Simulated scan of single mutants.
Amino acid sequence: MKTLILLVSIFTFSFAGAQETKLDWLTDLDKAQKIAKKESKPILMYFTGSDWCGPCKMLKKDFFNSEKFVEQSQNLILVMVDIPRRRDLLTKEQMQYNIQLMGKYNKRGLFPTVLQLDSKGKIKNTINSYSGSPELYFDFVDKML
């Protein structure tokens, strides 16, 4: 009986720990800039087409969902700008806001695009496209930190 209780406890605590590694993506750049300034952290802005962009889906799986990025992200303010084709995935207001951000930060409309911004919204570095190897993205983030 003690063994069963021990196993259940280990499973419960392991599961609780796994939930804590969830990435904290913001969708409001103004809010992100305020936090970045207060915490002295760079902003990582990610442009994705969550429901249609194959390379975006691969990048999410290979890079953003990796333990290494979850660890790196503790020193970043994360902003996701989604431009889905399905209009029911975002509110109308969020979609309009995301399109405005795209007009300023992703004029060429490339997906995926990841940018490093300072707390004032100035672009410091950019990387786009994804070919299946996350190492370039890990290096990109390492240089931010």
Rank of each mutant, 00 (worst) to 15 (best):
D142P: 05
K107H: 05
L6I: 14
V141A: 02
M80L: 14
F64L: 15
S40Q: 09
M45K: 14
C56I: 11
F13M: 15
F47G: 07
T12G: 04
F64Y: 12
M80T: 10
S66R: 11
C56M: 11
D62S: 10
I43D: 09
K122Q: 08
F11L: 15
V114R: 04
Q94H: 01
K107W: 03
L59Y: 05
F111V: 12
F111N: 04
S50Y: 05
L4N: 03
Q72S: 11
D88T: 10
M102E: 08
P42Q: 08
L44S: 06
I83H: 00
N98Y: 01
L76N: 06
C56F: 04
K38R: 13
T126A: 12
S9I: 12
S50V: 12
K60F: 02
T3V: 14
N75L: 05
Y105P: 10
A18K: 10
V70S: 15
G103R: 13
K143F: 01
A32C: 12
Y46G: 09
K34W: 03
L29W: 04
Y97S: 14
G109C: 05
M58D: 11
F13K: 10
M58N: 10
N125T: 00
S73N: 11
S131L: 12
C56N: 10
A16S: 09
V70C: 09
